[in-house]
Design a protein around this nucleic acid. Sequence first.
DNA 1: CGTCAGACTTAGAAAGTTAAAA
DNA 2: TTTTAACTTTCTAAGTCTGACG
Length: 917
Amino acid sequence: MATETVSKPVVENGCEDDEEDGPIVFKRRSTVASNSNQSKSNPQRSNAVPSTKVSPMRSPVTSANGTTPSNRSSSVKSSVPSSSSKASPAKSPLRNDTPSAVKNRSQSHKDQSECKRELEDSEDNRPLSFIMSANSSRPNKAPNSSLKVSSPQPDKKNSGDRSLDRAKRIIKDESDDETPIASMLRKKIGSGMSGSSKQVSNDEKKPLIRKLHLNGSIVKNEVTSSKVSGKRPLEKNSSAGESSLKKHNVSASTTSVKMKQDSVKTESSGDKGKALVTPKSTKARQLSTREEDTDDDDVPLAKRRKSESSNSKISSAKPKAVKVIPSSSAAKPKVTKVVSHTSRKMNKNSKKVMKDSKYSTSSKSLPSGDGQKKWTTLVHSGVIFPPPYQPHGIKILYKGKPVDLTTEQEEVATMFAVMKETDYYTKPQFRENFWNDWRALLGKKHVIQKLEDCDFSPIYDWHLVEKEKKKQMSTEEKKALKEEKLKQEEKYMWAVVDGVKEKVGNFRVEPPGLFRGRGEHPKMGKLKKRIRPCDITINIGKSAPIPECPIPGESWKEVKHDNTVTWLAFWNDPINPREFKYVFLAASSALKGLSDKEKYEKARNLTHHIKSIRETYTKNFTSKDVTKKQIAVATYLIDKLALRAGNEKDDDEADTVGCCTLKVGNVECIPPNQIKFDFLGKDSIRYENTVVVEPPVYKAIGQFQAGKSKTDDLFDELDTNKLNAHLKELVPGLTAKVFRTYNASFTLNQMLTDDNGDGDVNHKIVVYQQANKKVAIICNHQRAVSKSHGAQIEKLAGKIDELKEGLKELETNLKRAKEGKPPLEGSDGKKIRSLDPNAWEKKIAQQNLKIKKMELDKHTKEDLKTVALGTSKINYMDPRITVAWCKRHEVPIEKIFTKTLLAKFAWAMDAGPDFRF
DNA sequence: CGTCAGACTTAGAAAGTTAAAA
DNA sequence: TTTTAACTTTCTAAGTCTGACG
């Protein structure tokens, strides 16, 4: 298997020296030349420090399955079935190369697995980040005064745009893709591994978990009552409930775990064909052919869905199932719930089941969504509107003279005035769009005829004063204000879904303002008008009371009772009337949690198919059929570089691209087989990366470019529909975005598998952050450099110098002490008492430690200045990997996940220490 | 098929909080 | 205490992907 070809991943990073593990992952490594610059020096550091992480990469071993003895993984797996197992086996062995090799190898093909990759330099390992920094720059926005400054090198390119440049990286590797990455490496083990586990925090979150269960089942509306057990109790009670909850969870969890495993296993062998997408996702189900398998849990539903069609409830086996009650309104379920474990399964079923009931949808139309029933009863209070505009009466100056404006005119003028210190303010596109919309309010005959002759500073100054006033309020006043607001919003914050109280995500209607599109958005600056009740459609359970319209005298546009969708309300986006803005439940809700879990299961399931997928596209690199060839190359890029699919965009949107929409000018072939990518992706974030690709890919890209202009599509025969249709043929339910999730979670799993277990908690957290960073770089998650970054770095450098001065003094005194002389006066003139040489040495050692730590901090800061770690943590890395790692290493989960993240990932909290992606 | 409406996930920046340093 | 830097949460823009339609 693995062998050759196909796979191979690139390695990323890593290489460096020895150790590394090999994760291969493909991804980018970076290297970047640039780096050189500054970075360089650091490079090492980087490693050093983290040591942790960095090194990680490579692992040699592998082979064998990757597993290595040590690892628990293996063992674990065995024990546990499922989870882990998959991992390793599947993949293959990766090997790693040794360090040295690095360079050379590159191509080697062979190896299996190999990873080889080497990276060029040592650095590689390190991530881009460095790189990034190094090179590019990323500056951010520029203009503003305030801002900008900081960035060090700013200028660089882009000026304006945000883009930040970012990183460049290079990947090398060859082929490898993949495969397997073997997984694990592990080296150290040591520490913790063993069991430990413990529980992590627990508590808290647990509740959530339970929710999941519920999903389906249970409860009737009555919210309250029931719950105790299950659902989330409304907050209040919480305490009480907890304990119980936990237990539940536990059990549940286990169960769940198993389930998965099973399924997994099954598949694995068979793979391919069937594929199940693990998850139950709907789609997946549909697709799935399979049948059978497993059914249990997951699958079943899926199938079911279809089959069942209407009412049948299928539920099949599981007894429980909910009852669907078509009946009337609302359907309150009656349900019964039943047992726990099963319950969870059921839940799923239930969902599916429901679907039939479609009756739901009320009237109209589209079933939207995937057509499945998402809830049985839904109660909420609608949305809250921003307060009406309060005129301040401050006049702007037109050609130096104050001008009277109506309230509406003043409101819009204020929106613009307030943005004085942002980059938008000076952008011609922004100003033009603003002027057009404002002028419509002023009227053609208004005294104000040119925006350039307007002086908004009186309003801006007033704004600053107001801001300052607010800031100066006493703590009590602020608190009172806050409570007042809370009290007002409280009822809108919650919804009751199938008897469970859940948080609503965005119950506040967006206030009017000037559109702030990212990048060079053609519509930036346009007035986003105020949304009124008559713009809003409410979706709520049939038997629930219709929320009263908060604005007297007005009413909702429409009230629907569609249980095949999860939104509570929506309105058309004023900037783009054909699009909508939805009000959904918060991420902590069971509904969102379940789909989140399905997302990760789907990605995890890819582990079983990745090998054949890679074989397929490798074979098609040389296909005579151009479409096939383009699909193969595009899939390769998505797999290897974690690129986004790249849907088509309209002209009235920022000009950004994804894989399928890459332009000829976005890629450059660098002999013998490197490809340089440079394009603006989502949010106009720049993706700059140079990677080594397999020769057939290099050749194919050259062919796709031939005879075209820079602005032509590279993949002229392709679009996301075709690409996804193809992916679905390979694995039911598979789409392009799954690769990003797979890549991210796979990488995290890899990086955390080896246990760099030693060290205290803080050190372990650094290890985690490095893993997180690597994932963020792979996904190209960037952030603007903070305004004060440069100053902060300087400050740190200054402190380091100071410490070094102190060190010199200490050394002098040590010397003097050895000679029997008294210490010199301190630089500040103070007398210093004498100590014996040993004491001085101790002080010197301490001082050195301090210096080291500070240098490390400085380096880390510089290193992460353009890397956003949060996005991958929230959306891409399977939280179960983190939970398992925390349990293994006895790191409190709260150190990694914030409160909201804990709530969002409640469904993952019971993952066992041996969970493997 | 290609397009489009619709629904839902993913993003970075801004705003708000909290912890740490001065 | 006050300031500042770090960390969280909120906000809403910008993607992905599916099913219906012509």
